[in-house]
Amino acid sequence: MGSPELSFTHATPYDDYVGTATLRALPGPRTDAPEEPAFLVTTQVMELYFGLVRTELRLAVRLLGGPRLPEATAAIARAAAYLDVVNAAWRPLNRLTPRRFNAFRAGLGEGSGFQSALYREVEFLLGDKSASLAQVHRGNPETYRELLAALRAPSLYDAALSVLDRRGYDVPAAVLTRAPETPYRPDPQVEKAWARVYAELGPGDELWELAEALTDVSDGFTQWRVRHLAAVRRSMGAKAGTGGSSGASWLERTLRREIFPELWSARTLV
């Protein structure tokens, strides 16, 4: 067996491919608190993975508009897998107490996860839309344009309901033609349509596989919200958030906004 190459003129091909120099140059801790590096790296990892989730959801929306349903479902399944990784990234912060968080909290300044444009766009792509929440990014024109485009375009769920309609399921016209930027409201006919999918179909059927992939994404995104709330309550209780939000109470309200609601309620009808 040959020996590995040990001599390179500059950086190794691995370093070039992965961009390790760029990673090492990322902003580092602003205090000497031992927990701050884990907090910072965890946040950076989440941003990278939300970028992956956004890419897959954008692709899935496009594919759902055409005949390539299995490819769309595969993209949604990949997004769900990325959300599993994002949720696991909370683990290093699970034991962050208020005293230890306070040791570096001032370094955040007015920074807050609330301000993540990638997270917000993923939220919009999933159908949880709010025009006011895009306003925080007006100072960054390119990011703001992307958020407004996601706000005004059909969401992943809108695209999925159009598939149901094309396949002969009873989806009300009012649901299909509603303004995409408006918050989605559950509809009993949509609930019945998903109930039919689960009552009549099974593994291997394209619509059933789509429904399960969507459910996985909904579950993964909701789990992220739950874990975020738990981390905030554990590290700072009911204090106001660094970005000016009400902290834990704000996050509690987000949990009331269900992602793909009829996919969950339809199970009661089956």
Rank of each mutant, 00 (worst) to 15 (best):
Ala134Glu: 09
Thr20Lys: 12
Ala150Gln: 03
Pro180Met: 07
Phe114Trp: 11
Arg253Asn: 00
Val136Pro: 00
Ala173Lys: 15
Glu47His: 14
Val232Glu: 14
Asp32Gln: 15
Val86Ala: 04
Glu191Asp: 11
Trp264His: 10
Leu147Lys: 04
Gln135Phe: 10
Val45Cys: 05
Gly28Asp: 13
Arg256Pro: 01
Arg185His: 13
Leu269Gly: 10
Leu255Glu: 11
Val45Asp: 07
Gly204Pro: 05
Arg30Val: 15
Arg68Asn: 05
Thr143Asp: 04
Trp194Pro: 08
Thr22Pro: 01
Gly2Gln: 01
Ala153Glu: 15
Phe101Asp: 01
Lys239Leu: 08
Ser155Ala: 06
Thr97Arg: 15
Leu52Tyr: 08
Glu121Thr: 07
Arg225Met: 04
Glu262Gln: 02
Leu151His: 09
Thr268Leu: 09
Tyr17Gly: 02
Val18His: 04
Leu151Arg: 08
Leu229Glu: 07
Val197Lys: 07
Arg58Gln: 06
Asp170Thr: 13
Ala199Thr: 05
Ala150Arg: 09
Thr22Asn: 13
Pro186Thr: 01
Pro172Phe: 05
Glu35Ser: 09
Arg196Lys: 14
Pro172Val: 10
Asp205Leu: 10
Ala149His: 12
Lys129Pro: 09
Thr143Glu: 11
Ser235Gly: 09
Arg196Ile: 08
Arg30Gly: 15
Thr177His: 15
Asp158Met: 06
Glu200Pro: 10
Met1Ile: 08
Arg178Phe: 10
Asp170Ala: 15
Val41Thr: 15
Glu209His: 01
Gly168Pro: 08
Phe50Glu: 07
Asp84Asn: 10
Leu96Lys: 00
Trp250Asp: 03
Leu207Trp: 11
Leu83Trp: 00
Pro98Thr: 06
Glu123Lys: 06
Leu118Ile: 03
Tyr144Thr: 00
Tyr17Val: 02
Phe50Val: 05
Gly247Val: 08
Gly127Tyr: 07
Leu263Val: 03
Thr73Gln: 05
Glu181Val: 12
Ala193Cys: 07
Pro154Gln: 01
Ile76Lys: 02
Thr9Trp: 00
Ser235Asn: 03
Ala238Met: 13
Val163Trp: 06
His10Cys: 04
Pro4His: 13
Arg24Tyr: 03
Trp224His: 09
Thr73Lys: 10
Glu191Thr: 11
Gln115Glu: 14
Ala89Ser: 15
Leu207Gln: 10
Ser265Ile: 01
Pro154Thr: 03
Ala88Glu: 14
Trp194Ile: 06
Val217Ile: 09
Gly66Val: 07
Glu47Thr: 10
Trp90Thr: 09
Leu83Asp: 10
Gly139Tyr: 10
Ala80Glu: 07
Asp84Cys: 05
Thr20Phe: 01
Asp187Arg: 11
Pro186Trp: 07
Arg196Gln: 13
Leu133Trp: 07
Glu209Arg: 10
Arg185Leu: 12
His137Glu: 00
Thr182Ile: 11
Pro70Cys: 08
Ile259Gln: 03
Pro34Ile: 04
Pro203Arg: 13
Arg167Gln: 08
